[in-house]
């Protein structure tokens, strides 16, 4: 009998994704990327990484719908400390596997590798997209610092896209996963070499990857007071952000800044404490799924633009929130 199902699968468009792995751990933000690439089963998903992944990570990838896990290797060039070589290996893999689309995450790593790939291939790159419509060959991304949404067309092959972390929620859709190795044959084209990674002392969750963010504005008053927000973030399983005013006042480092000249984030839940609600701040967080404003001033503009609000002093509200969440956890 003619196997209809098999026929369809063999002709499924292949979408490649570049995984984000840190210290051999697969980051949670990868699963939303798999979901985006899978397109509810219309595409076959091939996941690429330069790292060796354990059984648990492989099972997780299979659960979200990855059918091939391919380790990128090369004997001819260093692909771990050279972003140029890594991009060249990805380009070769895209050709070899006949990928119609290549998707990465819009993180420091993904933005860099995909822009290098776009330059090598001389194709367009849809950067930091929030939605993809494979059928219509379009993607939706922010224009004008989050003030407008642009629909861009994906006309070239391979179509290159980076997806904003957390913008597309992960949905499980099990597949049978096979692992293999792809030996890239590239001449080293390393023009830039990673000399060192300076790690910060406290291993905090990165803002752009956090599913929940609690941000403190200028009324935080001094750097030490962020500990109060950190305590709440720890209970929530999230990260702490800062407004531009707080960063400019020297209360927090720039790496914590959310907004126009800081990070653009898309968490499930964003708690803004003592943030007035400037356009520039909203530019960096308005694609959050739910925004909660906590502000002493009942007339603060933030309340006009968020989902839920509490009028109150953050120095009272946040500890009360932390306490209530802790109590919930305990029983």
């Amino acid at each position: 009998m003619y196997d209809d199902r098999k026929y369809t699968e063999e002709n499924m468009p292949k979408t490649g994704i570049l995984l984000e792995v840190e210290n051999t751990e697969l980051k949670d933000i990868n699963f939303g990327l798999v979901t985006a690439a899978r397109d509810t089963g219309a595409n076959e998903v091939l996941a690429f990484t330069t790292e060796e992944l354990g059984t648990e990570a492989q099972n997780d990838l299979a659960r979200y719908g990855v059918s091939q896990l391919i380790r990128l290797r090369t004997d001819s060039a260093d692909i771990t400390s050279s972003p140029d070589n890594c991009a060249a290996a990805c380009v070769q893999a895209a050709r070899e596997y006949g990928l119609e689309y290549c998707l990465g995450l819009a993180t420091a790593f993904g933005r860099d590798i995909f822009a290098r790939m776009a330059a090598l291939l001389d194709v367009e790159l849809a950067a930091d997209v929030l939605q993809i419509d494979f059928k219509a060959k379009t993607a939706v991304k922010s224009h004008f610092s989050g003030k407008t949404m642009a629909t861009v067309s994906l006309q070239e092959t391979p179509g290159l896209l980076t997806v904003r972390p957390n913008a597309i929620s992960p949905v499980e859709q099990p597949a049978t996963l096979e692992s293999s190795v792809f030996q890239a044959d590239i001449q080293s084209q390393a023009k830039v070499a990673v000399k060192e990674i300076k790690t910060s002392d406290d291993r905090k969750m990165d803002l752009t990857e956090a599913p929940i963010i609690i941000t403190g504005g200028r009324p935080i008053g001094k750097p030490e007071n962020y500990a109060m927000l950190q305590e709440c973030a720890d209970v929530l399983g999230g990260a702490v952000g800062a407004s531009r005013a707080a960063v400019d006042a020297g209360y927090a480092p720039h790496s914590m800044q959310v907004g126009q000249t800081g990070k653009t984030v898309s968490p499930n839940l964003y708690l803004a404490c003592g943030v007035s609600g400037a356009v520039q701040h909203f530019a960096g967080m308005k694609t959050s799924k739910v925004i909660v404003g906590i502000n002493k001033d009942k007339d603060a503009p933030i309340f006009e633009k968020c989902d839920y609000g509490i009028v109150g002093d953050m120095f009272e509200v946040v500890p009360a929130l932390t306490k209530a969440l802790q109590q919930e956890k305990q029983g």
Binding site: K147, T148, T151, E304, K305, A324
Partner: peptide, 30 residues
């Protein structure tokens, strides 16, 4: 330009406010 459409981002229509004391509004929020 490969731009097909440009649309305004829908603004939220205003917050639902949590009422009562600090403890009450926090409980309501959770």
């Amino acid at each position: 330009p490969n731009l097909g459409k440009l649309e305004p981002v829908p603004e939220r229509s205003g917050a639902t406010m949590m009422e009562g004391s600090v403890e009450e509004s926090v409980a309501q929020l959770i």
